[in-house]
Design a protein around this nucleic acid. Structure first.
Lengths: 189, 189
DNA sequence: ATTGTTATATAACAGCTGTTATATTACCAC
DNA sequence: GTGGTAATATAACAGCTGTTATATAACAAT
């Protein structure tokens, strides 16, 4: 008897995601999403209980997008490096999503989540580090931590518009630091 | 003939700064500052043209506070390390000020400003690097860039609540990475 | 075609923001 | 004390937010 829904959850989420990508989470309001869909706010609140629920859905979408970047990086010859470059690519191509996942303390992500996300491929990455660079598990962990912090530092600088590095510069910087740390770790054996 | 101002620019700025430190710039509103002072919003707008002017004043105050941290670091035996630790101390003790100065793309600071601020002591720091570690000017620059990015990475992780490192851990991490880079730079001579 | 259900639109509410017009009031000069 | 000036208080405006009550309208079943 009732008419079908004209606006699906997916349509609404996609409209909201467009706004999030372009202008950040603060720009995702009931009215802005409705305007993007060309409807009133009513359909939004018939699908989502409130705006918090929509935001949670968006965070899930962001994680999925980030995961797709990581998956590409994992296919790299040197998965360890590939994942790092994926992280940076995600930051540069989706700065507002990066901010939401990795620069917000409103509990969007956090290191635990980052690591558990990564941990799906943790062993693979570590094996890669050990194979490629001939490091012990402990040294691999050290290298991983240092490089993750360094990579995160670059990503944040790019995302906040503080510094603009070219792909080539970034590659050079990462290689240089990584090589220095590996060399030093090896020399201590 | 007119009564004296009961609320000075300094008083208003201090009240706003308290709110900024505790809850971030978004919490600094005309009404919140007035409430902290125990007055209406009128005195604020008699001293400041609008809220933007007050925010600019706050940014200047932040820079001054940050500068005081840097000055302490410069007195360190190894100024290069001292400044880095000051940067981290500032991030941990004043996360909301750090976010405003170093994590906002609304043009609060930016690398140019950071570097020009630092450049006041640039030569001193470089001389320190060259003296302490025996590096060329070019290598000193490299070391400085790498260490600044790494330090910034740690600071952001702390400020966003992603990771919590102890002072000891941070010291160890910084020392390890710094030593590795220096060793590698030297070996290339 | 009529009816009933409900998706959607409209519009309003409350609460926040910056800003300002008006009213009050405090204080300095006389 | 009286008066005038301007600092302050009050309250309102416009514009934003989330949310919701009500009205409209679309569509499926009969």
């Amino acid at each position: 008897m009732p008419p079908k829904n004209r606006y699906t959850k997916e349509q609404i989420t996609n409209a909201a995601l467009e706004i999030l990508r372009a202008d950040g989470m603060a720009a995702v309001t009931a009215r802005s999403v409705a305007a993007k869909l060309g409807c009133s706010v009513a359909p939004i609140f018939s699908v989502f209980e409130n705006m918090d629920e929509l935001q949670n859905e968006l965070i899930m979408q962001c994680k999925a997008i980030y995961t797709s970047y990581v998956e590409v990086g994992l296919k790299d010859k040197v998965a360890f490096k590939g994942v790092g470059l994926s992280y940076l690519k995600f930051a540069m191509e989706e700065p507002n999503l990066f901010k939401l996942l990795f620069m917000s303390n409103d509990g969007a992500y956090g290191l635990d989540n980052v690591l558990s996300e990564i941990e799906v491929n943790y062993e693979g990455i570590f094996k890669c580090v050990q194979d490629c660079y001939g490091l012990s598990e402990e040294d691999s962990k050290k290298l991983y931590l240092h490089m993750w912090i360094y990579t995160h530092g670059i990503a944040v600088l790019c995302v906040t518009g503080t510094c603009l590095f070219s792909d080539k510069e970034i590659d050079g910087m990462l290689s240089e630091v990584c090589a220095s740390i590996i060399k030093d770790l090896r020399s201590k054996k």
